[in-house]
């Protein structure tokens, strides 16, 4: 069962002694439903300081990539206790949204998704290519929030990568919220 896009799974392990890019490794590539299931790993198996990223083939999971420079991310910040009960479910649902081409005609705006395992709180984000395309960004956010089963009162924010890159404090401003 072929997927609409070929996807690359990346692994990142932070190592202060090395340049950021050198800590990023391509794990595998999937382009069928069967491939996906035979390669995918549980997020909770990752140790703190590590990330997974699933990105369309040809797009690197970094701001500098030409398909990410003008884009941004829908960010889901998890409370510490959510790591044990919600993390794997939320990450798997995110991946199913990606490989299932679930964002209607806006799916072509989706670049990939990243999960960061961090002591101060894990984060899952869906990256899109054009932060100025309000219609697509908002529709992707609405579908994503619904697919994650987040309650109406849980607000998720969209931040442009340029804002995240230049933020002074730890919180970049939200360009959109749903």
């Amino acid at each position: 069962h072929p997927l609409q896009n070929r996807w690359v799974l990346w692994f990142f392990k932070s190592d202060r002694g090395r340049a950021w890019q050198d800590n990023l490794h391509q794990v595998t590539m999937v382009d069928t439903v069967e491939d996906f299931w035979s390669h995918i790993q549980l997020a909770s198996k990752l140790s703190p300081g590590c990330d997974y990223a699933l990105f369309k083939d040809g797009i690197q999971p970094m701001w500098e990539d030409s398909r990410n420079q003008q884009g941004g991310r829908w960010l889901v910040s998890l409370a510490k206790q959510q790591r044990h009960c919600e993390l794997d479910r939320l990450w798997l649902e995110t991946l199913l949204c990606l490989i299932g081409d679930s964002f209607e005609e806006h799916s072509r705006e989706v670049c990939g998704a990243v999960i960061n395992i961090r002591p101060k709180g894990d984060k899952i984000a869906v990256w899109t290519s054009d932060a100025e395309n309000q219609a697509s960004v908002l529709r992707i956010g609405q579908v994503y929030k619904e697919r994650l089963g987040l309650s109406m009162k849980t607000i998720i924010g969209y931040q442009a990568h340029t804002d995240t890159a230049s933020k002074s404090n730890s919180l970049a401003k939200n360009k959109f919220v749903v």
Binding site: D35, S38, L96, I99, G100, D101
Partner: peptide, 20 residues
């Protein structure tokens, strides 16, 4: 045509061995 799969369809393949 568009290859779009909903979550139920995808989950059906979760424990099926990949045919290599």
């Amino acid at each position: 045509g568009k290859k779009q799969y909903d979550r139920e369809f995808l989950l059906d393949f979760q424990f099926m061995p990949a045919c290599i």
